[in-house]
């Protein structure tokens, strides 16, 4: 359980245009263990999405290295799957096709999966996320919450070691968000080969509810890493009443407020 899966070493990343150079990340060091649920949290513009982008393999660091299971990361890989914030499904494909297509493409050159098998796996995962009966709908016919369920099914169906999530519930109404958080925890917990999850959010409560560890980021770097020692399975209502939760929350709120005072607005959260 305690072996390191993701290792980030002296990572720096700068966005360069012709005239300006903007340093988004500077000298980041972080290790994430197998089966761990880590939340990256921080004010907007602090580089949390950029850091996730590097893990996704969509952004190349300016200096420093990222290792996944001791292999240096260059570009995306089939051991990682990503859930984006929204509008990331392929709009011309049905829900089922979205999942089976991703499954077949991600395993291309590694493992041959027939269309039939891929469809079967897709149906299975869509059922797991509560979308049985919606397999043949296109994303445009689904609500935001349903689309994110498909996105989760798509990522999980590829059976990755690592699940990278970039504010997946950020654009969803509060009630549905809670249900999806619980669904995610349930799917994560019932997996035999527990996945490592890196989850970007700006919602404190979401981070505390989900994470084993919270990485609190400030512009350019990591401010502190906070352990969340709350028993699982977690129940939101009971959690709210516990002292541990409240201390943790007030600590994070303080961090947030201190930071927001002396950090100026630097840009959006997108990559």
């Amino acid at each position: 359980m305690s072996e390191t899966v993701i290792k980030i070493e002296d990572l720096s990343l700068a966005y360069e245009t012709e005239k300006t150079r903007f340093e988004a990340l500077k000298n980041i060091n972080l290790e994430i263990k197998k089966g761990e649920f880590v939340c990256l949290i921080g004010p907007s513009g602090c580089g949390k999405s950029t850091l996730l982008g590097v893990l996704e393999g969509l952004l190349e660091p300016t200096s420093g290295k990222v290792y996944i299971e001791d292999r240096e990361v260059h570009g995306p890989g089939s051991e990682r799957a990503v859930v984006f914030q929204n509008y990331s499904l392929f709009p011309w494909m049905t829900a089922k096709k979205n999942v089976s297509f991703a499954l077949r493409e991600s395993k291309r050159g590694i493992q041959k999966i027939s269309k039939k098998d891929a469809n079967k796996i897709a149906e299975e995962y869509l059922e797991k996320v509560g979308l049985a009966g919606y397999e043949n709908k296109q994303p445009g016919e689904l609500s935001g919450g349903m689309q994110q369920r498909v996105a989760i099914a798509r990522a999980l169906a590829c059976n990755p070691e690592i699940l990278l999530m970039d504010e997946p519930f950020g654009a969803i109404d509060a009630k549905t968000r809670e249900v999806l958080q619980q669904l995610l925890l349930k799917l994560w917990a019932e997996d035999e080969n527990k996945k490592t999850i890196v989850f970007v959010t700006h919602d404190l409560e979401e981070a505390i509810f989900l994470a084993d560890r919270i990485v609190f980021m400030v512009p350019k770097g990591i401010h502190s890493v906070i352990d969340v020692n709350l028993e699982r399975p977690r129940d939101k209502e009971k959690l709210m009443l516990s002292d541990k939760y409240r201390t943790l929350r007030s600590r994070l709120v303080k961090l947030f407020n201190n930071e927001e005072d002396n950090s100026e607005f630097i840009g959006g959260a997108g990559i």
Binding site: E127, K128, V129, G130, L131, A132, G133, Y134, E141, L142, S143, G144, G145, M146, D173, K175, T176, V179, Q182, L183, K186
Partner: peptide
């Protein structure tokens, strides 16, 4: 319910998710 597994645990589609 259309969904067996997810709705059993109360994690099925919420009212706001469904489209009329």
């Amino acid at each position: 319910s259309i969904s067996e597994k997810a709705s059993d645990s109360g994690l099925g589609l919420t009212e706001t998710e469904k489209i009329v």
